[in-house]
Write a protein that binds this DNA or RNA. Structure first.
Lengths: 172, 172
DNA sequence: AGAATCTAGTTGCACACGCAACATCCTTGG
DNA sequence: CCAAGGATGTTGCGTGTGCAACTAGATTCT
């Protein structure tokens, strides 16, 4: 079992490439994001969801399932964002266990500055690598993969993403 | 700066999807890999490179640049693999600073068992999501992205991957 | 040859993450 | 109406990670 790799490894290679490109992009983007706006990839991810939600607010659980974080990871992440004053926790009236994460004014200001920089950086980074059409294709395929995976976790395999608001996903 | 997302965010969305699908796949794959073979994604990644290298050996630096790990991360990872007896370190004759990581017999045996299981799991996981043609397209695009990113890090932007051995990348 | 510079690899340190256990609250069923 | 079960969010604990500083060996320049 040394160096033989049947063409059925192709799929494995594709998955490997997915990991590699993801990690590569993260390693380039994260430092820039940090020096530009003092945000980690995860923080930015959380903030993007909030920025794009009505009332700049989202339930913790919602946030957890949308980001790349586990519930516990999200708790800490929001803790930090709260300490920095970008996010505030707010009790949920109807469900006293629940909590909202709400973007503060400062959080909105930070994002208003961070987004364009980040977008520009990504643009600069990816320019000329893929045609517009290819990018669209790539996005469509990745979306399908993501939704398929998600369907597995929630077991009931439904309520995927509402194609209308295509899970924006600013980053990470 | 609330919910407006010009079509120039498309690229950001694509990057976001890349992160999401990568993280999603990892979260599904890793536990399985762990219970099946007792390996983490990173360990598996390291072992795959070794399995596919002549003499089952690779320089630490080579390994570091090929995997998703930093040099320091790789050191610890190889430390652990060495403790488990799957990998051994070997001094480099021509360069006394350098070190090889070499797959032991045990390491080869573990991989011989782990690979098919892992491949099967991925197959099962991704079956029906993309057509064969799409998979090929996806791999090609991801490869381009990865190579483009890599070219940035090494500054000199050369010596990309030798298309012949297309950076196999079993996983992670 | 000898000093300055560079590279390979390792380690101290701090930090972020996930898992599993937990407290709290909602929801069903008798 | 109360008990059993499910959901939401948080925390203790162990572990893995990256950065920066470091050791040791190569390389280059004068």
């Amino acid at each position: 079992m040394a160096g033989e790799q049947g063409r059925d490894d192709e799929r494995v290679t594709t998955v490997g490439l997915l990991f590699e490109s993801s990690a590569g992009l993260r390693r380039v983007l994260e430092p820039q994001l940090l020096t530009d706006s003092g945000l980690s990839n995860h923080s930015f991810d959380v903030l993007v969801r909030l920025v794009r939600s009505p009332g700049f607010r989202l339930r913790m659980s919602e946030l957890a399932s949308q980001t790349t974080l586990t519930p516990s990871g999200l708790t800490r992440s929001v803790d930090r964002l709260e300490e920095s004053g970008m996010v505030a926790r707010e009790a949920c009236p109807e469900d006293r266990r629940g909590a909202f994460a709400v973007l503060t004014d400062k959080g909105q200001a930070v994002m208003a500055e961070a987004m364009p920089l980040h977008v520009a950086h990504i643009d600069e980074l990816l320019d000329g690598v893929l045609t517009d059409e290819e990018e669209e294709t790539l996005a469509s395929m990745l979306r399908r993969i993501r939704d398929h995976i998600r369907g597995l976790g929630h077991s009931t395999a439904c309520e995927e993403s509402e194609a209308g608001v295509p899970m924006v996903s600013g980053l990470s």
